[in-house]
Design a protein around this nucleic acid. Structure first.
Lengths: 165, 165
DNA sequence: TATTGTTATACTCTATAACTATA
DNA sequence: TATAGTTATAGAGTATAACAATA
């Protein structure tokens, strides 16, 4: 119908893969208390151990308010506990429950299995180049995004209206 | 702190790339009426031409209600027009405005530039293998996701409670 | 004064269900 | 009866701003 055809390149495939993954995770968790955003919280706790809500907000790069809501939900579903901070009475330490930790261990195994399955679809001779390629792309993209965010931040500092609505 | 270290593999890198991309798009559109979900609507219209809201819902795999909201916002911001369907008086045809079409053309060029920049970070000798690899992974993943969704659908048909809350 | 977390408020994306107008 | 779109309602993720308790 429209003549704006575009070639499908590596980047498009990468975005498609990310999208498929996100959708599948949401589908897999349908009917449970878990969601992609809540699972991200659990992964951070699993990899880095118990931490305060502020530390969580920093790690996840979301607002403190958002963390309050996510932890509320995860506490209600039995995935995390809120405990007192040993020295700072303002702070709350969030920790995984044993049940959640066991569930994450299972998910980690499934993730490894999926990685193996997907890699099995790639010609053995192509695998090393594939790994080098995606590493290089991720590296470059990380740099570009940080640069763009920094430029936007400086612009906003110079002219605060730039940030408004 | 925690001893649950995991190796970073191809799949993790792919997910990181998708995430970086999504975040960067959201940041780039901050301060405008555009959002990732609305831009997806615009891309579908750009690639396939004007269509009814129901066709849009099918293409995007979201509910008709959701499309109403997205089109409301895009109409208010001047990116699309709602026009009467030539023969079906129930239906509405959604079309890009000239302004939006020009903006999408620019975005398409930027997307191509970004693809070129990222590919330039990959060793020339690795590029063909990279393209074959991500194509193979996307293919396999597409199959797995469709299979999982199908299995979940059949289970829900057999025992409707499976779908509840 | 600065920081941690919460309450208040608001917007976006998403869904299902009920309803209107038309096929 | 079935379909296209809207209204009503709701939950999740996100944000800023104001506030309480504590450092």
């Amino acid at each position: 119908m429209s003549d704006h055809e575009i070639p499908v390149t590596v980047l498009d495939r990468l975005l498609e893969i990310g999208d498929l993954f996100e959708r599948d995770m949401a589908r897999a968790f349908a009917g449970t208390a878990l969601t992609p955003a809540r699972v991200r919280v659990l992964w951070v706790l699993r990899h880095l151990g118990p931490m305060t809500q502020h530390e969580l907000a920093d790690r996840l790069e979301v607002s403190a308010r958002n963390v309050t809501g996510l932890v509320d939900a995860l506490e209600a579903s039995g995935h995390v506990r809120r405990t007192r901070h040993p020295t700072d009475r303002r702070a709350i330490v969030v920790a995984l429950t044993d049940v959640a930790d066991a569930q994450l261990e299972r998910m980690q195994r499934e993730h490894a299995d999926l990685t193996a399955t997907l890699l099995a679809a790639v010609e053995p001779a192509d695998r090393a180049a594939l790994q080098r390629g995606v590493d290089a792309i991720a590296d470059r993209l990380r740099g570009l995004v940080a640069e763009a965010a920094g430029a936007a931040g400086r612009t906003a500092d110079a002219s605060p209206e730039g940030r408004t609505r």
